[in-house]
């Protein structure tokens, strides 16, 4: 691995059409679980192969078994239930989960597929979890009297899963809290929950949070007890970069700088990526600056995802060459 501008992704990859079809068939009771498992593994192999071919440094398994980042864990945690359909926009609906009862982690949820993905590559594969705050905030709440209680109990459940990934050898565990970006006033609770979720974990930890008003939550936001903040910088305000430049960022922490917009079909140019990386280098030295897309690729096509990653890689090579670190 290089000594700077380490490349990675936020977590999800688009599901190949055959897997999407198989998931629908499985949901309709027309495909046995074992066959779906096999197809999930096939897709995982393709995701790993793509990342290897592009030359990324830290890989992910692509979350081929997960439909939705909250629902997936809800299906596996005791005390959670997958509720009825709720509309999210247009003609799109999803089964919003319910925290129905006392939460309990009973068995590893993500470890098998992580282990499988890691067995396919020499490069490190990140373990990917949904954070306790987001798990509860994006669910209905019935089983606890207070939101806070539920979040802290959820944190214990997520901690069990993080410890399992840790024991299995995951070098890096990312615990995502996208829900926090719309309610940064809950930062104290999110910090407390993250401390519980990461307790005893030896692996490096990180968190991805979608774009939010980090300026008003500064500097407390960066007290989240993780080593790496994966932020949507491609859409971020000039103000945040200025703030990080002038007021600083904790010296023992890193930023994964999201340099391309995953919610757009348009493929950025290498020059766009280079200038975004340089914005990052104004704030952090290359050893503490990771480069990635600004969110998961779930909503992009396979080709769009690959194209965006190739542009990132090209931009990173260019800047590394300029810095003489490649």
């Amino acid at each position: 691995m290089t000594t700077g501008l380490v490349t990675t992704t936020v977590g999800s990859f688009p599901k190949p059409p055959y897997l999407q079809k198989a998931r629908n068939q499985f949901a309709a009771g027309k495909l046995p679980r074992e066959e779906l498992d096999e197809l999930e593994k096939q897709a995982t192999r393709e995701v790993i192969a793509l990342q290897e071919e592009i030359g990324l440094d830290i890989l992910v398994d692509g979350e081929m078994a997960r439909g939705d980042m909250v629902v997936y864990f809800a299906e596996h945690l005791e005390g959670m239930e997958v509720g009825g359909l709720v509309r999210s926009y247009g003609n799109r609906y999803y089964h919003k989960p319910i925290v129905k009862d006392v939460l309990r982690w009973t068995e590893p949820i993500t470890v098998d597929l992580w282990r499988y993905a890691q067995s396919l590559t020499e490069k490190p594969v990140k373990g990917m979890l949904t954070g306790p705050y987001t798990m509860v905030e994006w669910s209905f709440l019935e089983g606890y009297d207070t939101f806070r209680q539920a979040v802290l109990e959820m944190a214990k459940a997520i901690n069990y899963e993080a410890l399992e990934l840790d024991r299995a050898g995951a070098p890096f565990i990312q615990i995502d809290e996208p829900a926090l970006s719309t309610r940064l006033e809950d930062i104290e609770l999110a910090i407390e929950a993250m401390a519980i979720a990461t307790e005893g974990v030896n692996a490096k930890t990180g968190t991805h949070i979608c774009y939010g008003d980090f300026v008003s939550a500064y500097p407390r936001f960066f007290d989240m007890p993780v080593k790496q903040f994966d932020l949507e910088m491609a859409n971020s305000s000039h103000e945040l970069v200025e703030l990080l430049k002038t007021k600083g960022f904790p010296e023992d922490k890193e930023i994964a700088w999201g340099v391309v917009d995953v919610h757009s079909h348009v493929i950025e140019s290498v020059d766009d990526v280079v200038s975004e990386i340089k914005r990052g280098l104004d704030v952090l030295p290359p050893e503490r600056l990771y480069i990635d897309p600004d969110c998961g690729f779930k909503t992009r096509t396979w080709d769009e995802s690959a194209a965006k990653l190739r542009v990132i890689m090209e931009g990173v090579h260019k800047v590394r060459a300029e810095l003489g670190i490649e």
Partner: peptide
């Protein structure tokens, strides 16, 4: 008010919009 009911009742509006699309 929620536009579609859950199974076993049919999601008529959702299906109709899909068909229009």
């Amino acid at each position: 008010y929620p536009k579609i009911p859950n199974k076993p009742r049919p999601a008529r509006l959702r299906n109709a919009i899909n068909k229009l699309d």
